[in-house]
Design a protein around this nucleic acid. Structure first.
Length: 410
DNA sequence: GCGATCAGAT
DNA sequence: CACATCTGATCGC
């Protein structure tokens, strides 16, 4: 987790800098308004929301990392005591407002902390996000992926949030005389509420603290704290239960909507909601489903994966399902594929060939023997490797030998 | 009496 | 299975 210098979503002593992925309570456990253990890095939006959670926090400790830009930070190596530099880039995590992943490069290699994230593979901006991520990695192996493995099991399958949001609107539309309560947390699922508000042209009630958050996010026009103005209310998830819904229904007809990736609706027992006629569970999730996690890992080809959600069993252990996508060879194949892609070669056709690296090198030698091939190579043969320009061939050979940097550093 | 931490409920 | 959050009990100062 830490290299002795940095901590991500961990707040105990012993780090020179601390990184917060997003403002949900399970990632801020240990933080308080009196916390003062070092500089705290976060996204600009998280910094804006921060005082709501920690009103008297010393804001001089906050450091904003703008999304998509590299920052260099100077540290003291805990082992040698000598100065060292770490590079960090924040990447949109698509989980809740302000949420980011952190990509680190340093003496320890290359590490990505996803925090909580959703990696939807349909909808607008998908290609752009994919390209941004690969570009951030450059032509380096990803040594360790710290992964949001919340739903890392094939049994977790759900649609995009866009599809789930339409399902929610359909449920509300088909109950025109009912009041509606929707379970949400202190942050997140704003897009769902905005979709409902726009599609049905209604305001949505939220509790006062939540309206303050909506104000900071710039969404306040769609929300109100006056119950008389709307039949749709967003309520804290912990206050949402069968008992609540039954009590509400003694006053007026009310349905409840629980947006969640957890497959409660299909469970037989132990599920308080499946037996309720009032409650609709809709698969709207701010975490990646299994197939999205798989896409993410296939894209990154990390050498090693660590799940950020610990589990007593292997049921959500990423190594159990994706070990075959990890390791040094897999990491090298990704880099080769990217280099080919940057050269304009159709990698989809070559995907199978790439897996035979020996044959690949031979083919490249042939290709470079043409006049055009030689010219192109002179420019593209140089690749950026841990900040050093090295020749592509030498890089690939070093990687194939299992070069120094590829050894596990943790 | 306050803050931190944890079990339990929702 | 396990989300994010609140409440209440307990511990140490």
């Amino acid at each position: 987790m830490e290299s002795g210098m940095i901590s991500v979503d961990k707040w105990s002593y012993g780090s020179q800098a601390y990184f917060l992925t997003h403002l949900h309570a399970d990632h801020t456990a240990g933080l308080s308004s009196t916390w003062n253990r070092g500089p705290l890095f976060c996204s600009r939006l998280t910094a804006k929301l921060f005082p709501c959670k920690f009103p008297s926090f010393n804001l001089f400790l906050l450091r904003v990392l703008d999304i998509g830009s590299w920052f260099s930070l100077s540290f003291t190596s805990p082992s040698s005591g000598s100065p060292t530099t770490i590079y960090v880039k924040a990447i949109d995590a698509q989980h809740c407002p302000g949420s980011v992943m952190y990509l680190f490069r340093g003496d320890f290699g290359c590490m990505l902390f996803t925090g909580d994230f959703r990696w939807e593979v349909t909808g607008s901006g998908v290609e752009n996000r994919r390209a941004m991520l690969l570009d951030a990695l450059k032509n380096e192996t990803l040594d360790t992926l710290h992964l949001d493995n919340t739903y890392c099991n094939p049994k977790y399958s759900f649609p995009s949030r866009e599809v789930a949001a339409r399902e929610v609107v359909d449920i509300i539309s088909s109950h025109p005389k009912h009041d509606v309560v929707i379970a949400i947390d202190s942050l997140g699922k704003e897009d769902l509420l905005l979709h409902i508000s726009r599609e049905l042209d209604i305001k949505i009630w939220v509790w006062p603290e939540r309206l303050q958050i909506m104000h900071l996010l710039g969404f306040h026009e769609h929300f109100t704290t006056q119950t008389s103005l709307t039949r749709v209310r967003a309520v804290p998830r912990y206050s949402f239960s069968i008992e609540t819904l039954e009590a509400l229904n003694t006053i007026r007809p009310t349905i409840g909507i629980m947006p969640s990736g957890l497959p409660w609706a299909t469970e037989q027992n132990g599920n308080p909601f499946s037996s309720s006629e009032y409650i609709f569970v809709v698969p709207y999730s701010d975490h990646s489903c299994f197939s999205e996690i798989q896409e993410f890992i296939e894209l990154l080809r990390p050498i090693k994966i660590k799940g950020i959600v610990s589990s007593s069993s292997c049921c959500i252990d990423p190594c159990y399902y994706f070990d075959h996508l990890c390791g040094t060879q897999q990491a090298i194949w990704r880099i080769q594929a990217k280099i080919e892609n940057d050269e304009g070669v159709d990698t989809s056709v070559e995907a199978a060939e790439i897996k035979s690296s020996a044959a690949k090198e031979t083919k490249e030698e042939e290709e470079s023997s043409t006049v055009v091939g030689r010219k192109r190579r002179r420019i593209l043969d140089q690749v950026d490797f841990f900040g050093i320009r090295v020749s592509r061939v030498s890089l690939l050979r070093r990687l194939c030998r299992g070069g120094v940097r590829l050894a596990d550093t943790e």
